[in-house]
Simulated scan of single mutants.
Amino acid sequence: MVILEPMTEVDFQNYLEPAIAEYAQENITNGAWTEETALERARKQYTELLPQGRATPSHFLFTIVEASQQQKVGILWFALEEKQGQSTAFVYDVSIEERYQRHGYGSQAFREMEKKIQELGISKISLHVFGQNHAAQQMYKKLGYVATSMVMSKVLDHE
């Protein structure tokens, strides 16, 4: 079983730079950004989303902790947003440390997050997942999430 603990400032600082680098790389891999600009663009987006760091209003950053061993296994970040007059939650990031992956911690963290979001009076959760992240897509499907839109691309050979 996991619990979601509010992220400490130390945990936030340990999370931030690797998360920015990973986000930049994901955007390079999916062809959205160039290698030359990706890191700068990722850093800018994080700064815009979290201008007050972990104290940014309506943003909830958690450390995922395996309860019995009190071991930190990952992070989860969501925010409350208004979309078309409806309050929703948007999951910005969930990450399980590699050595703890495939043990159900991600699914457990999502169930705990869903309880917290319901307690806030919110009834809809949205998220973005990169097309090449098949493991995450499978987990989200198992948890009942469905695709609401999809962008597809094809790279053409120039011959």
Rank of each mutant, 00 (worst) to 15 (best):
I3M: 06
I3N: 03
L4P: 03
E5G: 05
E5Q: 12
M7C: 10
T8E: 00
E9S: 13
V10N: 15
D11S: 14
N14E: 01
N14K: 04
Y15N: 05
Y15T: 02
L16H: 11
L16F: 14
E17V: 12
P18V: 11
A19M: 04
A19Y: 01
A19S: 15
A19W: 02
I20P: 06
A21P: 01
A21I: 08
E22S: 13
Y23M: 00
Y23T: 00
A24H: 00
A24R: 00
N27P: 09
N27Y: 09
I28D: 06
G31W: 03
G31A: 03
A32R: 10
T34P: 08
T34Q: 11
E35V: 11
E36T: 12
T37V: 10
A38G: 09
L39N: 06
L39P: 07
R41E: 15
A42Q: 02
K44P: 06
Q45R: 12
E48F: 07
P51F: 09
G53C: 07
A55F: 12
T56F: 01
P57W: 06
P57H: 07
F60W: 04
F60S: 04
L61S: 13
L61I: 11
F62Y: 15
F62I: 03
T63Y: 01
T63K: 01
I64F: 00
I64C: 03
E66G: 00
A67Q: 14
A67E: 15
K72M: 03
G74S: 05
G74R: 06
L76S: 04
L76G: 01
W77G: 00
W77R: 00
W77F: 09
W77T: 02
L80T: 09
E82R: 10
K83V: 15
K83R: 12
K83D: 14
Q84C: 03
Q86F: 10
Q86N: 07
Q86P: 02
S87A: 10
S87Y: 10
T88S: 12
F90Q: 12
F90A: 11
V91N: 10
Y92N: 15
D93R: 05
D93M: 02
I96S: 02
E98D: 14
R99L: 07
R99I: 08
R99E: 07
Y100L: 04
R102M: 08
G106Q: 02
G106I: 00
S107G: 15
Q108R: 05
A109E: 09
A109D: 10
M113N: 03
E114W: 05
K115Q: 15
K115T: 13
K115R: 14
K116C: 03
I117C: 06
L120A: 11
L120K: 15
G121A: 10
I122F: 02
I122P: 01
I122E: 04
S123M: 12
S126G: 11
L127Y: 07
H128I: 11
H128T: 07
H128V: 08
G131Q: 01
G131H: 04
Q137K: 07
Q138T: 08
M139C: 03
M139L: 13
M139H: 00
Y140Q: 05
K141M: 08
K142I: 00
K142L: 00
K142Q: 12
Y145G: 07
Y145H: 02
Y145I: 04
Y145D: 05
V146D: 11
V146L: 13
V146I: 13
A147C: 13
A147Q: 14
A147R: 13
T148N: 06
M150C: 15
V151S: 12
M152W: 09
K154D: 05
V155I: 13
L156M: 10
L156G: 01
D157K: 11
E159A: 15
E159M: 12
